[in-house]
C-alpha cells in the first residue's frame, strides 16, 4: 500500500524546498544578529587571576618533587595559608559568588541576549511551519526504516499505516534545525555562532564558581607529600655517564 502513495510535485516545490531555504536563511540571519548583539565583554581581572592561580598551583602539585623542600614549603605557605594565601577563600565570600553573578546586570543581559537570539527565531519558525505545513507528507527517504523512527520522521501525522520512510513536514523542520550545522560551518566559517549544542554547553558551564575550584586546589595542595626527587638523579646521572663512558 505504501508504494501507492505518490507525492505531488507541488509539495516538493511549495513545501520541501521553501522549508529548507527558509531554515538556511534563518540560520544565516541569526548568525549575523548574534554577531551584532555580542558585546565585547571585558574579563574581570580577578577571575583571570584566579584561573592563573589555579594553573600555577596545579603545576606546583604536579612537579613538587622537582624543587628543594625549602622552596616547596614556602610556596605551599604562600598558596594556602589561612590569612592571605592565594588559594584561601574567606568563608562569607564563597556563598556570595553565585548571588553576585546574578546581581551583575551585564551578565544577566548577556545571557538574555544569547537566549533571545536562540529561542525567538526557533519559536517563530516552528509556529510558521505548524500553521502552514501541518500534516503534509513532504518527502520520502530512499530506504526503509523500522517503526522506531516513526516518531522522529512522522511527527504530526497520526497514521500508523503510512510507511516510515515518508517524512512529515514538521519532522523535516526538525531535521533541518539540527542537521544544518555542517552546512553553516561551510557557509559561515568554522566558528559560527549557530552551533546550538556548543551553546548548551556554555550555558551549563555558566554557573561555574571559581572559588569552589580554588578550594579544591587548596585541599589537593594540602595533602601533597613532598619527596625531593633530585637525590635519585645523582645515581641516575651516574648510570647514564657510565654507559656513555664505557
Amino acid at each position: 500500500m505504501a508504494e501507492d502513495l505518490v507525492l505531488d510535485t507541488a509539495i516538493r516545490d511549495w513545501v520541501l524546498i521553501p522549508l529548507s531555504v527558509v531554515m538556511v536563511l534563518i540560520g544565516v540571519l541569526r548568525y549575523f544578529v548574534s554577531k551584532l548583539m555580542r558585546s565585547s565583554s571585558v574579563p574581570d581581572p580577578k577571575i583571570v587571576k584566579e584561573g592563573q592561580v589555579i594553573i600555577r598551583a596545579r603545576n606546583l602539585r604536579a612537579a613538587a618533587n622537582f624543587i628543594p623542600a625549602k622552596s616547596f614549603r614556602s610556596r605551599k605557605a604562600y598558596y594556602s595559608n589561612e590569612e592571605n594565601g592565594l588559594l584561601h577563600v574567606p568563608k562569607g565570600q564563597a556563598q556570595n559568588a553565585q548571588a553576585q553573578m546574578f546581581s551583575d546586570p551585564n551578565m544577566a543581559m548577556d545571557m538574555m541576549k544569547k537566549n533571545l537570539s536562540m529561542i525567538i527565531p526557533q519559536t517563530l519558525t516552528f509556529a510558521w511551519v505548524n500553521f502552514f505545513f501541518s500534516g503534509f507528507v513532504a518527502a520520502k527517504i530512499p530506504f526503509p526504516l523500522t517503526q522506531r523512527f516513526r516518531s522522529m520522521l512522522q511527527n504530526g501525522i497520526d497514521l500508523s499505516t503510512v510507511d516510515v520512510s515518508y517524512v512529515s513536514s514538521r519532522s523535516w523542520y526538525f531535521l533541518n534545525l539540527f542537521g544544518l550545522r555542517g552546512l553553516f560551518s561551510l557557509i559561515l566559517g568554522e566558528e559560527n555562532a549557530t552551533d546550538d549544542t556548543q551553546r548548551m554547553m556554555q550555558m551549563s558551564g555558566f554557573g561555574f564558581d571559581p572559588s569552589k575550584s580554588l578550594g579544591a586546589e587548596k585541599d589537593g595542595l594540602d595533602i601533597v607529600q613532598h619527596e625531593w626527587a633530585l637525590p635519585k638523579f645523582e645515581q641516575r646521572a651516574e648510570a647514564v655517564l657510565r654507559k656513555l663512558v664505557s
Binding site: 628543594p68 633530585l230 645523582e234 641516575r236 646521572a237 651516574e238 647514564v240 655517564l241 654507559k243 656513555l244
Partner: peptide, 15 residues
C-alpha cells in the same frame, strides 16, 4: 643542591 640539578640536567640530556 646545584650539583644535584647538574646531575638531573645530565640525566635529562643523556650526558
Amino acid at each position: 643542591i646545584a650539583k644535584k640539578y647538574y646531575s638531573s640536567a645530565v640525566e635529562l640530556t643523556g650526558g
